[in-house]
Amino acid sequence: MKGFRYLKDVATLKLDRAACVGCGRCLEVCPHQVFVLAEKQASLGDRDACMECGACALNCPVKAITVDAGVGCASGMINEWLRERKLRAPGGGCCS
């Protein structure tokens, strides 16, 4: 995203190029232009721009993409962590 970069080498996004059928759906749904399409095959042009929203993986018709998608906010993750350790009742969290 123009003017903004987050941490390097953390995104869990993976693309199985052998499975890719070149439909280009990942390019349509990615809000950060992570993918490029050349000769009917997608590749990861800018993996560090990935925010792990999971849109590409969900919309890939051949399941060639995997990513550990999920809520990315600190308070949501603190609540998740507390719930896992049974220190807090379920429910709540951010933007819920």
């Binding site: 987050y6 600190a74 993750m77 951010c94």
Partner: peptide, 20 residues
């Protein structure tokens, strides 16, 4: 400010985890 990652549209879950 770390909490604002929840409002931003470019931070990844793995990045926030690492940062936390």
């Amino acid at each position: 400010t770390l909490n604002f990652t929840g409002c931003s549209t470019y931070t990844s879950r793995s990045g926030v985890k690492k940062e936390m």
